[in-house]
Amino acid sequence: MNQALKRSHEPIFWLLFGAGGMLAALIGAMLVLITAFAVPLGLLPADAFSYANMLAFAQNLFGKAFILAVVALFFWHAVHRIFHSLHDVGIHAGTGARVLCYGTALAGTLLTVWALWTIGF
C-alpha cells in the first residue's frame, strides 16, 4: 500500500504560509497604519518616510532583514491561501495555477532581494 502513496511537498509551502500568516496577524494591521495613515493622521512627523530616512533604514542590516521578511512572507502566505481557495471554488488548474500563484511570491521575493542588494549597505 505504501508504494502507492506519494509524499506531499506541502510542508515547504505550509511553513511559509504559517510564518507569513503569523507575522501578518501580529503586525499586519499596524504596518498598514504606519505606512499609509500615520503621516496623514499626524501620528508620525511629515518627513518620517523621507528618502534619506528610508534609505538609511534599508541600508541597515536589520532594516533589510525586516523588509525582506515582511514582503516575502506576506507574499508566500497570500499565494498559498489563494491557491487553495482556487481549489475550493472548483478551479483545479493544477500546475498552471500553482505556477501562477507561487510564481508571484517567488518573483516578489527575488525582486525584493535584488532591490535590497542594489540599495547597498
Binding site: N2, L5, K6, R7, S8, E10, H84
Partner: peptide, 14 residues
C-alpha cells in the same frame, strides 16, 4: 507516517 505525509494525507486540510 507515510499516510499522514502523502498526497491524501493531512495537507488536504485548510
Amino acid at each position: 507516517m507515510a499516510l499522514i505525509n502523502s498526497e491524501v494525507g493531512v495537507f488536504n486540510c485548510t
